[in-house]
Nucleic acid binder design. Structure first.
Lengths: 180, 180
DNA sequence: CCCCCTTCTGCAACTAGTTGCAGAAGATTC
DNA sequence: GAATCTTCTGCAACTAGTTGCAGAAGGGGG
């Protein structure tokens, strides 16, 4: 599974506490691997026990007290192995495509509004990605390999959102202008 | 959740037994909503109890005996409601994009082979979709609304695979010809 | 007839992810 | 200086999905 590796990556980018991680998952790593704070806390516990990360010594260790984690060499090693590991892509799932197929049988009443809503959401996400690209990846920041890799990831997000925007636009056109 | 609706859709397309459904999920509905036979059997049980489907009267009802299900009006109603229901798209997950981001930190050794493997798989899937399109959706079979909807779904699959093929091709070019 | 193979259904036990809630520490405010 | 709000961590209980296995029925084949 990928959650521990997502966390290791995030912690290597910057040592953080559970809540900080949660927030960063909400806007960066989470764009392609989302997780709730619960998953994160539990996984931090497991990673610590496995010796992949450790809590930075805190002045007052207590419940409700912020706890920062950093990655240990073993954790970095595990992540490095994982990058090269062979793993089949898991079949994608789209409830929207499924609904479309159901609509082919029971009728498309009410579907149009939902498609429009999704279209708006995907447009929004696309704009967000484009803003990030402009901010974080100006042409001169695409030289080093790490930067090129990070930019490729973002490009993936951009192009995927573009795909949805185009597909939804086409679907709406195909449904005809006056469906219920 | 969508699994029960996937099953209702499949059963409306054709009443089936659990194993038949499993096979059809492996090659049709499952392209965008996969499920194991276990999930399917359990869900069939729940759907039957909810009065959404019923088992067709079998000559010899017994364990190990094929059991066909068909959708009842209540099930069709539920599916019809679901088509119009509002439901946020769940954030996508891609272990590959995640790995790319990890590679930006720990190095991209060994990643290239994996990208090539995925590229081959996506090309294969794309070809399969195109073959289905040619077989099931010749130009004259795209007239009725149900056919147009079903074709849109397939188009979604085609374009998504195209996206991956293009992204992976670009990523491989970007990684440079001689990465480890 | 008996063994074995396939088909079909299903239980049990697991991992992953979600939701709701609660308690401690520190900051804020009146 | 007490009431309350925010931050941070975490438990408990749930739903969804996965994996491994087993048992019944039926169809050959020697």
């Amino acid at each position: 599974m990928s959650l521990p590796h997502a966390i290791l990556t995030a912690l290597l980018e910057k040592p953080s506490s559970g809540l900080e991680l949660t927030r960063r998952f909400d806007k960066s790593i989470g764009y392609f691997w989302s997780a709730t704070h619960q998953q994160i806390y539990r996984e931090l516990g497991k990673l610590e026990q496995a010796g992949h990360i450790r809590a930075l010594p805190a002045p007052v260790p207590a419940r409700g007290q912020k706890k920062e984690y950093e990655v240990l060499p073993a954790g970095r090693g595990e992540l490095s192995d994982w990058v090269a590991r062979s793993e089949d892509p898991k079949p994608m799932r789209s409830a929207l495509l499924l609904r479309m197929r159901a609509a082919a049988i029971v009728g498309a009443e009410g579907l149009r509004a939902e498609l429009e809503r999704h279209l708006a959401l995907h447009r929004e996400q696309l704009d967000e990605y484009l803003a990030i690209e402009e901010r974080d990846f100006p042409a001169d920041r695409r030289r080093t390999e790490p930067d090129r890799l990070r930019h490729l990831v973002l490009r993936g997000g951009v192009d995927l959102e573009r795909f949805w925007v185009e597909w939804l636009t086409g679907a709406l056109a195909e449904l005809g202008p006056s469906e219920a």
